[in-house]
Design a protein around this nucleic acid. Structure first.
Lengths: 224, 224
DNA sequence: GGAACTCCTTGACATGGATCAAGTAATCCG
DNA sequence: CGGATTACTTGATCCATGTCAAGGAGTTCC
């Protein structure tokens, strides 16, 4: 368990004792693909950490349309907002792959913060990073058209996957469309346009970047 | 100065000594309407607090279109993200009314956090609240149409202004359109539709809610 | 290894909202 | 107070993207 905690950036720099203490009050939960971890509006009860698998955090509209806010893999934490704000979850969380989730109950977590030097600062940095990510997401949704959002997403993936030009899509195209705020049909059509303009090649879950500069231009300025 | 600091929620619960210490390392800056406070991409240099006036935090697209992220009045703080994350500002800030801004340099602010019990927790709560606000904004932009966003905004104002039915718009309609991610023309047309359906009355900067229930329905489900 | 999914693609069509343009109302300021 | 500037409204038009429908590709699982 302690090994798993070490892999969580939020806990970087903590002593072995502190990690042991965290381990002693955490539990591990298993979720199948498609299983809900919590629902928007539920009372926030603690900190969640992805140990393995993939999780999406999302909102649903009145009509059932979905907007994904985050996709989290191993090492990421989520569910903090209601811990500090004392309210309910602002969004829902679901496993999109069989997942192992570490859970740290609220009171334990709060008392850890005050007793663990550095943890508070790690948390402030983590929440700040997420605020920054949200500003980018708002910018994308409001100020960019779908082709720009999609190319921005591909470029993000390329950076995450050690700047390679051969990229593996970590999620289905349907999920991807919910992440960038559009529909599967539109994603399909825009991918086609990007192939027609020789920006990329797409084969099922693999994307090959053929024209990095062209993709960067598209991600900023908009039209294919 | 200490009186002004007392009015800032972030500093609630701090002792007089701590407030005096903060006052001793803060400076106050004046900005005219339309003056930039900082630019997206600038190096984050500290904490900003609105003492009087109004500030908008916003992003600009490549083509110059604007999306407002926050409108802040007295007592609100901003500019924290780069302090904790160690990067640059994710957005720009401008005074939209003559404003007085308190400024606390980064190093002073960081050392205050470690030496001031409660301040760290206040900050975590504050950032969490903003994360929640952003999830709402993303939901609005992605999952709701303009009439729903506009009615949600009116209802938010009503709550802020002690749940009254006679509301004063705190910003121009042009700014409002940039806040909800649309254009002045569309705002104008939607206001008209809402008047035609007897949901509200609009006179320049005053809105009177005629049908609260109808407005709430519209803010959730969408179509007029 | 084939049936039964789910996911993806493609085409035809509908539409919310942006843009352009021109006029009208507010507000600012000497 | 009156002219100038800025903010708002209204109409005409256009387009990006959503929706509906149907067929095709990929995946899963006994």
């Amino acid at each position: 368990m302690i090994e798993k905690l070490k892999a969580i950036p939020l806990f970087s720099g903590l002593s072995h004792e502190h990690l042991a203490k965290i381990a002693s009050v955490s539990s591990i939960l298993g979720f199948d693909r498609g299983e809900m971890i919590f629902h928007e509006g539920d009372k926030g009860n603690g900190l969640y950490m992805v140990e393995r698998g993939t999780v999406k955090v999302f909102k649903l509209s009145f009509e059932g349309k979905e907007q994904i806010l985050h996709i989290y893999g191993p090492g990421h934490t989520f569910g903090e907002v209601p811990v500090f704000e004392g309210k309910n979850f602002p969004a829902s969380a679901m496993a999109i792959e069989k997942a192992g989730i570490l859970f740290l109950p609220r009171e334990k977590f709060v008392s850890l913060i005050t007793s663990t030097p550095g943890l508070g600062m790690n948390l402030l940095a983590d929440l700040s990073r997420r605020l920054r990510e949200f500003t980018v997401q708002i910018e994308n949704l409001s100020l960019k058209e779908v082709p720009a959002r999609l190319s921005a997403y591909i470029l993000t993936l390329s950076k995450e996957q050690k700047n390679t030009k051969k990229i593996t899509l970590p999620i289905s195209k349907a999920q991807l469309s919910n992440l960038i705020g559009t529909t599967p049909e539109t994603v399909s059509r825009v991918f086609k346009k990007m192939m027609d303009s020789s920006l990329i090649e797409v084969q099922t879950k693999t994307i090959i970047i053929k024209d990095m500069k062209g993709l960067q231009d598209l991600s900023e300025s908009g039209t294919i």
